[in-house]
Protein backbone atom coordinates (compact mmCIF):
# COMPACT_ATOMS: atom_id res chain seq x y z
CA UNK A 1 0.00 0.00 0.00
CA UNK A 2 1.23 3.46 -0.84
CA UNK A 3 1.26 5.56 2.33
CA UNK A 4 -0.14 8.57 0.42
CA UNK A 5 -3.46 6.71 0.50
CA UNK A 6 -3.67 7.63 4.19
CA UNK A 7 -3.50 11.33 3.34
CA UNK A 8 -6.08 10.92 0.58
CA UNK A 9 -8.54 9.22 2.90
CA UNK A 10 -7.96 11.53 5.86
CA UNK A 11 -10.98 13.72 6.53
CA UNK A 12 -8.54 16.49 7.49
CA UNK A 13 -7.36 16.73 3.88
CA UNK A 14 -8.14 20.43 3.33
CA UNK A 15 -10.33 20.02 0.26
CA UNK A 16 -13.75 21.18 1.42
CA UNK A 17 -15.20 17.74 2.17
CA UNK A 18 -16.27 18.68 5.69
CA UNK A 19 -19.15 20.78 4.37
CA UNK A 20 -20.89 17.90 2.55
CA UNK A 21 -23.13 15.29 4.14
CA UNK A 22 -23.81 13.09 1.11
CA UNK A 23 -27.56 13.21 1.69
CA UNK A 24 -27.31 12.55 5.43
CA UNK A 25 -28.57 15.99 6.43
CA UNK A 26 -31.70 15.63 4.33
CA UNK A 27 -32.20 12.04 5.47
CA UNK A 28 -32.08 13.30 9.06
CA UNK A 29 -34.49 16.11 8.27
CA UNK A 30 -36.88 13.70 6.57
CA UNK A 31 -36.74 11.35 9.57
CA UNK A 32 -35.15 8.54 7.58
CA UNK A 33 -32.01 8.56 9.70
CA UNK A 34 -32.68 8.96 13.40
CA UNK A 35 -29.98 6.91 15.13
CA UNK A 36 -27.16 4.40 14.71
CA UNK A 37 -29.38 1.62 13.31
CA UNK A 38 -30.87 3.77 10.56
CA UNK A 39 -27.49 5.25 9.88
CA UNK A 40 -25.93 1.79 9.44
CA UNK A 41 -28.52 0.95 6.79
CA UNK A 42 -28.12 4.33 5.12
CA UNK A 43 -24.34 3.89 4.90
CA UNK A 44 -24.59 0.31 3.65
CA UNK A 45 -27.01 1.38 0.94
CA UNK A 46 -24.87 4.34 0.00
CA UNK A 47 -21.76 2.19 -0.30
CA UNK A 48 -23.50 -0.40 -2.48
CA UNK A 49 -24.82 2.23 -4.89
CA UNK A 50 -23.12 5.62 -5.11
CA UNK A 51 -20.05 4.17 -3.38
CA UNK A 52 -19.50 1.50 -6.02
CA UNK A 53 -19.98 4.00 -8.85
CA UNK A 54 -17.56 6.44 -7.22
CA UNK A 55 -15.02 3.69 -6.65
CA UNK A 56 -15.16 2.56 -10.28
CA UNK A 57 -14.86 6.11 -11.60
CA UNK A 58 -11.95 6.81 -9.25
CA UNK A 59 -10.18 3.65 -10.40
CA UNK A 60 -10.67 4.62 -14.04
CA UNK A 61 -9.44 8.15 -13.36
CA UNK A 62 -6.40 6.82 -11.53
CA UNK A 63 -5.57 4.55 -14.45
CA UNK A 64 -5.95 7.46 -16.85
CA UNK A 65 -3.94 9.74 -14.57
CA UNK A 66 -1.13 7.21 -14.28
CA UNK A 67 -1.06 6.91 -18.07
CA UNK A 68 -0.89 10.71 -18.29
CA UNK A 69 2.08 10.74 -15.94
CA UNK A 70 3.83 8.10 -18.05
CA UNK A 71 3.05 9.87 -21.32
CA UNK A 72 4.18 13.27 -20.09
CA UNK A 73 7.59 11.90 -19.28
CA UNK A 74 8.05 11.33 -22.99
CA UNK A 75 6.78 14.72 -24.13
CA UNK A 76 8.60 17.99 -23.77
CA UNK A 77 7.34 20.57 -21.32
CA UNK A 78 5.57 22.81 -23.83
CA UNK A 79 3.35 20.15 -25.31
CA UNK A 80 -0.23 19.79 -24.33
CA UNK A 81 -1.04 23.28 -23.16
CA UNK A 82 -3.61 24.36 -25.73
CA UNK A 83 -7.34 23.86 -25.94
CA UNK A 84 -6.73 21.06 -28.46
CA UNK A 85 -4.45 19.19 -26.08
CA UNK A 86 -5.31 15.54 -26.75
CA UNK A 87 -4.64 14.70 -23.10
CA UNK A 88 -7.76 16.65 -22.13
CA UNK A 89 -10.18 14.61 -24.22
CA UNK A 90 -10.18 11.46 -22.12
CA UNK A 91 -10.68 13.51 -18.94
CA UNK A 92 -13.72 15.19 -20.44
CA UNK A 93 -15.06 11.87 -21.57
CA UNK A 94 -14.58 10.20 -18.21
CA UNK A 95 -16.18 13.19 -16.51
CA UNK A 96 -19.11 12.85 -18.90
CA UNK A 97 -19.44 9.23 -17.79
CA UNK A 98 -19.69 10.50 -14.21
CA UNK A 99 -22.30 13.03 -15.30
CA UNK A 100 -24.31 10.30 -17.00
CA UNK A 101 -24.35 8.39 -13.72
CA UNK A 102 -25.52 11.38 -11.68
CA UNK A 103 -29.15 12.04 -12.45
CA UNK A 104 -29.78 14.78 -9.89
CA UNK A 105 -28.57 18.28 -10.84
CA UNK A 106 -28.01 19.01 -7.14
CA UNK A 107 -25.74 15.98 -6.86
CA UNK A 108 -23.88 16.98 -10.00
CA UNK A 109 -23.28 20.43 -8.59
CA UNK A 110 -22.13 19.04 -5.25
CA UNK A 111 -19.85 16.50 -6.94
CA UNK A 112 -18.30 19.18 -9.16
CA UNK A 113 -17.80 21.59 -6.28
CA UNK A 114 -16.02 18.91 -4.26
CA UNK A 115 -13.99 17.87 -7.29
CA UNK A 116 -12.93 21.44 -8.00
CA UNK A 117 -11.85 22.01 -4.41
CA UNK A 118 -9.97 18.71 -4.32
CA UNK A 119 -8.08 19.51 -7.52
CA UNK A 120 -7.23 22.99 -6.26
CA UNK A 121 -5.79 21.46 -3.09
CA UNK A 122 -4.15 18.46 -4.73
CA UNK A 123 -2.35 20.56 -7.35
CA UNK A 124 -0.42 22.21 -4.56
CA UNK A 125 0.24 19.03 -2.59
CA UNK A 126 1.03 16.65 -5.48
CA UNK A 127 1.88 18.76 -8.54
CA UNK A 128 1.49 16.55 -11.59
CA UNK A 129 0.70 16.63 -15.32
CA UNK A 130 -2.42 14.53 -14.69
CA UNK A 131 -3.94 17.13 -12.37
CA UNK A 132 -2.93 19.99 -14.67
CA UNK A 133 -4.63 18.27 -17.61
CA UNK A 134 -7.75 17.56 -15.60
CA UNK A 135 -7.95 21.13 -14.27
CA UNK A 136 -7.72 22.51 -17.80
CA UNK A 137 -10.05 19.91 -19.29
CA UNK A 138 -12.85 20.52 -16.78
CA UNK A 139 -12.20 24.01 -15.39
CA UNK A 140 -15.50 24.27 -13.49
CA UNK A 141 -14.66 21.12 -11.58
CA UNK A 142 -14.63 17.46 -12.47
CA UNK A 143 -16.86 15.08 -10.55
CA UNK A 144 -15.31 14.28 -7.18
CA UNK A 145 -14.52 10.61 -7.93
CA UNK A 146 -12.72 11.62 -11.13
CA UNK A 147 -10.76 14.26 -9.22
CA UNK A 148 -10.01 11.74 -6.48
CA UNK A 149 -8.71 9.17 -8.98
CA UNK A 150 -6.51 11.77 -10.67
CA UNK A 151 -5.22 12.87 -7.28
CA UNK A 152 -4.50 9.27 -6.33
CA UNK A 153 -2.44 8.89 -9.51
CA UNK A 154 -0.59 12.12 -8.75
CA UNK A 155 0.13 10.87 -5.24
CA UNK A 156 1.52 7.59 -6.57
CA UNK A 157 -1.40 5.35 -5.60
CA UNK A 158 -2.72 2.61 -7.86
CA UNK A 159 -6.31 2.31 -9.15
CA UNK A 160 -7.28 -0.22 -6.48
CA UNK A 161 -6.24 2.24 -3.80
CA UNK A 162 -8.10 5.04 -5.56
CA UNK A 163 -11.22 2.86 -5.54
CA UNK A 164 -10.76 2.13 -1.86
CA UNK A 165 -10.38 5.82 -1.03
CA UNK A 166 -13.55 6.63 -3.00
CA UNK A 167 -15.50 3.89 -1.25
CA UNK A 168 -14.25 5.17 2.09
CA UNK A 169 -15.22 8.77 1.30
CA UNK A 170 -18.68 7.63 0.25
CA UNK A 171 -19.49 6.59 3.83
CA UNK A 172 -17.24 8.57 6.18
CA UNK A 173 -18.52 12.02 5.20
CA UNK A 174 -22.19 11.11 5.81
CA UNK A 175 -21.27 9.28 9.04
CA UNK A 176 -19.45 12.33 10.45
CA UNK A 177 -22.30 14.59 9.36
CA UNK A 178 -24.78 12.39 11.22
CA UNK A 179 -22.67 12.62 14.37
CA UNK A 180 -22.81 16.42 14.17
CA UNK A 181 -26.48 16.62 13.23
CA UNK A 182 -27.92 14.09 15.66
CA UNK A 183 -25.37 14.27 18.45
CA UNK A 184 -24.74 10.54 18.05
CA UNK A 185 -22.10 8.78 20.09
CA UNK A 186 -19.02 9.14 17.86
CA UNK A 187 -17.61 5.84 19.09
CA UNK A 188 -20.79 4.00 18.14
CA UNK A 189 -20.63 5.54 14.67
CA UNK A 190 -17.00 4.57 14.23
CA UNK A 191 -18.00 1.07 15.20
CA UNK A 192 -20.45 1.14 12.28
CA UNK A 193 -17.65 2.24 9.98
CA UNK A 194 -15.39 -0.52 11.27
CA UNK A 195 -18.15 -3.03 10.55
CA UNK A 196 -18.23 -1.73 6.98
CA UNK A 197 -14.49 -2.26 6.44
CA UNK A 198 -14.85 -5.64 4.69
CA UNK A 199 -17.51 -4.14 2.42
CA UNK A 200 -15.19 -1.25 1.55
CA UNK A 201 -12.58 -3.71 0.37
CA UNK A 202 -15.16 -5.70 -1.58
CA UNK A 203 -16.50 -2.54 -3.20
CA UNK A 204 -13.03 -1.48 -4.27
CA UNK A 205 -12.39 -4.94 -5.74
CA UNK A 206 -15.71 -4.91 -7.57
CA UNK A 207 -14.86 -1.50 -8.99
CA UNK A 208 -11.53 -2.80 -10.26
CA UNK A 209 -13.17 -5.90 -11.74
CA UNK A 210 -15.68 -3.74 -13.57
CA UNK A 211 -12.91 -1.63 -15.04
CA UNK A 212 -10.73 -4.56 -15.99
CA UNK A 213 -13.54 -6.47 -17.59
CA UNK A 214 -12.69 -4.24 -20.53
CA UNK A 215 -9.12 -3.20 -20.07
CA UNK A 216 -7.53 -6.57 -19.31
CA UNK A 217 -7.28 -7.41 -22.97
CA UNK A 218 -7.92 -4.35 -25.09
CA UNK A 219 -7.09 -6.23 -28.25
CA UNK A 220 -9.77 -8.85 -27.73
CA UNK A 221 -13.03 -8.79 -29.66
CA UNK A 222 -15.56 -6.61 -27.85
CA UNK A 223 -18.35 -8.72 -26.54
CA UNK A 224 -20.73 -8.29 -23.69
CA UNK A 225 -19.63 -10.00 -20.53
CA UNK A 226 -22.30 -12.27 -19.04
CA UNK A 227 -20.74 -11.78 -15.58
CA UNK A 228 -21.17 -8.07 -15.74
CA UNK A 229 -24.88 -7.39 -16.12
CA UNK A 230 -24.56 -3.67 -16.84
CA UNK A 231 -22.45 -4.09 -19.96
CA UNK A 232 -24.09 -2.93 -23.12
CA UNK A 233 -22.80 -3.60 -26.59
CA UNK A 234 -19.81 -1.29 -26.73
CA UNK A 235 -19.21 -1.67 -30.48
CA UNK A 236 -21.71 1.03 -31.30
CA UNK A 237 -20.07 3.57 -29.05
CA UNK A 238 -16.61 2.74 -30.24
CA UNK A 239 -17.57 2.97 -33.89
CA UNK A 240 -19.43 6.22 -33.44
CA UNK A 241 -16.72 8.01 -31.53
CA UNK A 242 -15.51 10.91 -33.66
CA UNK A 243 -12.15 11.04 -31.93
CA UNK A 244 -10.91 7.52 -32.56
CA UNK A 245 -8.13 7.59 -35.09
CA UNK A 246 -7.69 11.32 -34.87
CA UNK A 247 -5.18 11.37 -32.07
CA UNK A 248 -1.73 11.87 -33.47
CA UNK A 249 0.25 10.58 -30.53
CA UNK A 250 0.33 6.79 -30.69
CA UNK A 251 0.53 6.68 -26.90
CA UNK A 252 -2.79 8.44 -26.65
CA UNK A 253 -4.60 6.27 -29.12
CA UNK A 254 -4.47 3.52 -26.55
CA UNK A 255 -6.15 5.70 -23.97
CA UNK A 256 -8.75 6.90 -26.45
CA UNK A 257 -9.51 3.38 -27.51
CA UNK A 258 -9.73 2.19 -23.95
CA UNK A 259 -11.85 4.99 -22.64
CA UNK A 260 -14.80 4.95 -24.93
CA UNK A 261 -15.72 1.32 -24.70
CA UNK A 262 -14.67 0.36 -21.20
CA UNK A 263 -15.86 3.44 -19.36
CA UNK A 264 -19.36 3.02 -20.77
CA UNK A 265 -19.39 -0.34 -19.05
CA UNK A 266 -18.57 1.01 -15.60
CA UNK A 267 -21.23 0.42 -12.94
CA UNK A 268 -24.19 2.79 -12.99
CA UNK A 269 -25.83 1.59 -9.80
CA UNK A 270 -26.75 5.01 -8.48
CA UNK A 271 -29.54 5.31 -5.93
CA UNK A 272 -32.73 7.18 -6.84
CA UNK A 273 -33.33 7.80 -3.13
CA UNK A 274 -30.02 9.68 -2.86
CA UNK A 275 -30.95 11.70 -5.95
CA UNK A 276 -34.27 12.64 -4.36
CA UNK A 277 -32.62 13.51 -1.04
CA UNK A 278 -30.14 15.77 -2.84
CA UNK A 279 -32.92 17.57 -4.70
CA UNK A 280 -35.07 18.14 -1.64
CA UNK A 281 -32.01 19.22 0.37
CA UNK A 282 -31.44 21.98 -2.15
CA UNK A 283 -34.95 23.26 -1.46
CA UNK A 284 -34.80 23.00 2.32
CA UNK A 285 -35.13 26.30 4.13
CA UNK A 286 -32.28 25.71 6.53
CA UNK A 287 -29.14 23.80 5.67
CA UNK A 288 -25.90 23.36 7.54
CA UNK A 289 -24.24 21.33 4.79
CA UNK A 290 -23.78 22.14 1.11
CA UNK A 291 -25.16 18.74 0.15
Amino acid sequence: MHAALLLLADSRLPAGGHAHSGGAEEAVRAGTVTGPDDLARFLRGRLATAGLVAAALAAAACELGSAAVDTSERVDGDAGTGEGDPAMLPWRRLDAEADARTASPAQREAARTQGRLLVRTARRIWPSPALESLARAVPDGAHHPVALGATAAAAGCDPGQAALAAAYWSVTGPATAAVRLLGLDPVAVHRLLADLAPSLGATARAARTALHTWTADPGAPWTTNPDVPWTADPDDRRASSPDIGRATDPDLIGVEFMSDACWAALPATTAPALDLLAESHLRAETRLFVS
Binding site: G17, H18, T121, L181, R287, L288, V290
Partner: peptide
Protein backbone atom coordinates in the same frame (compact mmCIF):
# COMPACT_ATOMS: atom_id res chain seq x y z
CA UNK B 1 -21.62 26.81 3.76
CA UNK B 2 -19.59 25.22 6.50
CA UNK B 3 -21.28 21.98 7.54
CA UNK B 4 -21.68 22.75 11.26
CA UNK B 5 -18.05 23.84 11.57
CA UNK B 6 -17.55 27.55 10.88
CA UNK B 7 -14.03 27.60 12.27
CA UNK B 8 -12.99 24.68 10.05
CA UNK B 9 -13.84 26.63 6.91
CA UNK B 10 -11.68 29.62 7.84
CA UNK B 11 -8.81 27.87 9.57
CA UNK B 12 -8.29 24.14 8.91
CA UNK B 13 -9.84 23.62 5.50
CA UNK B 14 -9.97 26.90 3.63
CA UNK B 15 -10.55 25.41 0.17
CA UNK B 16 -14.17 26.56 -0.23
CA UNK B 17 -13.34 30.08 0.92
CA UNK B 18 -10.34 30.39 -1.39
CA UNK B 19 -12.50 29.12 -4.22
Amino acid sequence: QTGCCPHTAIRDDIAANLD
